[in-house]
Design a protein around this nucleic acid. Sequence first.
DNA 1: CTTGAGCGG
Length: 302
Amino acid sequence: MGIDTLQRPSSASQKPSQSNKVRWGELEEDDGEDLNFLLPPPLVIGPDENGVKKVIEYKFNDEGNKVKITTTTRIRKLAKARLSKRALERRSWPKFGDAVHEDVGARLTMVSTEEILLERPRAPGSKAEETKVAGDPLSALGKGGAVLMVCRTCGKKGDHWTSKCPYKDLAPQPEGFIDKPATSETTAAASGTSKGTYVPPGARGGAERPGQEMRRRNEENSVRVTNLSEDTREPDLLELFRTFGAVSRVYVAVDQKTGMSRGFGFVNFVNKEDAERAINKLNGYGYDNLILRVEWATPRAN
DNA sequence: CTTGAGCGG
């Protein structure tokens, strides 16, 4: 047989109707030259009435010589012969459980039809939200006001939470820790003068002490960034602004329903000077495909 | 067009 009579035994030639899309599983490893096209196509004989099938194929061995490989298989009988003795033995075991009512081999796996609803616990209008509104005993009590609301910052009771405290923006003076824990009694006496009494941080000097300078927290150095592209996220903003100095917070407004960016955000700097430099450099700066607007933010309304 | 969500002893 001359070499010029050989056909290429590729799968592509056997399936001309298939498109020329490459399937990664069929990709050849491309180390070395692919000489397989020099070999005769594999020849399949049978299976005959006894289930005997022969495959004759040619390959190059490691030395680069052409070798002929003949594989003879007996289809059904071989399949059975492959089963181990233990596997054959297991076939005679009595069925149990639900399988008792099944045909032999009919079904090994049951398909569950149980419906499982997934919901975001905090989504507006979710069941979790509804039950909270309807059944929360605390919200009913809250109508009377003054229930258990003791501000940690100023120690006042019944008025506001810590986050709403009028003093919350005032930095407490660094002071020694007083090791007696707060009780309802001592908390009520928070503004008192007795020794060893717990005094809430906001009340330890500063807030009520005359002559003491009260430092504002860095909420002041809040920079508003608008005209952000849709896919700008907080890490991106941080990357952009951190070159000007320590950033204490980044925030990108996101539509709660769609998860899309609303195109603006805030960056807070530890130092006012850094914020100022960022504004000067970045306002009008081209970012992604848009021109940023960077300005001082006006304080958020509650 | 365009200034923030959410938590709780």
